[in-house]
């Protein structure tokens, strides 16, 4: 029987790496289902090689992104929120399916995610004033301290909150001038892939954010021990593996954000500055005063 209804064009869900959308070099995919177990998509299953490529892309992007003016970074990130808003319905559908939420609750989560992104976009040009200082040293010197981004940050994104949680861990990393390699929620990766499409069309330079769909348990150890990763956020690490990842991270003295005690937090709460502080260094500069 021939239906008159239009057959939809389905999306291929891929990685977002270095500003492009490749499949996993390994050729692997895995089945993503909705909360009830119905098929949604085959997502790319990122490999160790993909993770290492993502680190290379993030390192290459760090120089320009970290040196961009705070005003410029703020505008680019605000643009991300604008484009997210245009994809609102798509995000709602994906969040509702993946997290098993009602339409109303999915909409609330997407609203909060976009607003969170706006909140962080507004931070870029305030951080130096709030976290920096002029230091009254006991001598004829001008002495000041400024926050600077740590570098390449690996982020194991939350497993449950697929968009609001993701934005809540990613935005603070890039707002403060770092570049990111993110391992998305394993079971709920689709909103992350869509966010990648948003980033690709929002003037965020390629490589600043790299999104790997796959398994944090598989990719976590490689990112934790990688010498060119400066920091790691273990929020989405399997709880029983977090200690092992933290030990691996010690090899290159990485900054480590431990998984929150008591599991995934309420992402709607006021995020405070903790996440941005964790991925910022303080540089202090001295210069003599004299005639």
């Amino acid at each position: 029987m021939i239906s008159n209804e239009r057959l939809t064009v389905r999306k291929t869900y891929k990685l977002y790496l270095g500003g492009a959308f490749p499949r996993s070099e390994s050729g692997r995919t895995y089945e993503v289902t909705d909360a009830r177990g119905a098929f949604l998509a085959n997502a790319a299953r990122a490999s160790r090689k993909d993770a290492r490529d993502a680190v290379v892309a993030a390192r290459a992007a760090f120089g320009k992104w970290s040196a961009a003016t705070a005003y410029n970074r703020g505008q680019v990130l605000y643009r991300v929120a604008e484009v997210m808003e245009g994809r609102h319905a798509q995000f709602c559908e994906e969040v509702a399916a993946g997290e098993g939420l009602s339409t109303g609750r999915a909409r609330a989560a997407v609203d909060a995610a976009i607003d969170r992104w706006v909140w962080y976009a507004g931070w870029t040009d305030k951080l130096a004033a709030v976290l920096g200082s002029a230091n009254p040293v006991a001598g004829p010197y001008f002495d000041f301290s400024l926050p600077e981004p740590t570098g390449v940050v690996a982020v194991l994104a939350p497993q449950r909150s697929s968009l609001l949680g993701l934005v809540s861990v990613l935005a603070p990393v890039v707002a403060s001038g770092n570049t990111a390699v993110v391992v998305t929620s394993h079971e709920r990766p689709l909103p992350a892939v869509t966010l990648g499409e948003v980033l690709a069309t929002s003037d965020v330079p390629g490589g600043v954010v790299n999104l790997l769909t796959g398994d944090a348990a598989e990719l976590g150890p490689w990112l934790a021990e990688h010498d060119d990763v400066d920091a790691i956020d273990l929020t989405g690490a399997p709880p029983e593996r977090a200690m092992e990842f933290e030990r691996e991270a010690a090899g290159s003295i990485k900054r480590v954000l431990r998984p929150p005690a008591g599991g995934e937090p309420d992402w709607t709460a006021d995020p405070g500055l903790t996440r941005m502080r964790t991925f910022l260094e303080t540089k202090t500069v001295w210069h003599p005063k004299g005639f």
Binding site: N135, V137, A138, G139, S145, K283, T284, V285, W286
Partner: peptide
């Protein structure tokens, strides 16, 4: 680097991170 000394070196002060 965490501390940059310009036209000086090895200066320390409790007010200076």
């Amino acid at each position: 680097a965490g501390v940059v000394w310009a036209n000086t070196f090895n200066q320390f002060d409790p007010t200076s991170p």
